[in-house]
Design a protein around this nucleic acid. Sequence first.
DNA 1: GTGCCAGTTCAAGTCGACTTGAGGTCAAGC
DNA 2: GCTTGACCTCAAGTCGACTTGAACTGGCAC
Lengths: 117, 117
Amino acid sequence: MRDLDITEVAQRAGVPASTLRFYEEKGLIASIGRRGLRRLFEPGVLERLALIAVGRAAGFSLDEIALMFAPDGRPRIDRQMLAAKAEELDRTIRELSAMRDGLRHAAACPAPSHMEC
Amino acid sequence: MRDLDITEVAQRAGVPASTLRFYEEKGLIASIGRRGLRRLFEPGVLERLALIAVGRAAGFSLDEIALMFAPDGRPRIDRQMLAAKAEELDRTIRELSAMRDGLRHAAACPAPSHMEC
DNA sequence: GTGCCAGTTCAAGTCGACTTGAGGTCAAGC
DNA sequence: GCTTGACCTCAAGTCGACTTGAACTGGCAC
């Protein structure tokens, strides 16, 4: 697939161009070059952005996410740390499941006040 | 159970007292009175704080959470909105599950770079 | 070749969620 | 009854994650 300019990436990923520039500055994504001033990205950046979105939804900070995309020299990711994150995520998932069920219940039940139901 | 003063709540809930004051100001929790200057809370506030924590983990803002604890006159929660939130949460859960599995895999596999593994 | 417009830089601003600091106040212990 | 310490208020500060504004630039259409 052809390289994408910043507006194409912004449209497809559903994020504003300003965010893309911000992420690039933070080292979360990289542009592959320029056409004139205009940044060019390889299509893979879309997958990367999706990962970033999921990571953010999971409660990771941008810095933590950047660490997971290890700058891939030696800043080696600690496997224990990864396992710990997975554990943490698992707990979060269980809590969210409980909340989802609570919401579904609240949506279904007919009591006037959600607190008494 | 006896009413709790702010430091007891802070300890049991694992949040700083400043956060409790902040939440009270926002209307997320309510103190039941004072002993001298010192706020008193009923024990139920602990459950409430747990709900707030889960809500935050689920990506809701404090204002959204406050809405769910409806001021319980008429700011009626829309059941459809609740169902929609549950849906959204469900999507998030599935994505987080994928991420957790990815992390577990990364933690287990022996490749030097996590990107090529 | 000259406008124009979308993209660029860099600094400053915003927003949510708290935290911190300065100065005040009570109730409890001595 | 007076000191002390923990909590009080209120304003200001911080932090992460972006967004916005002003001034600039370069390819494309004419």
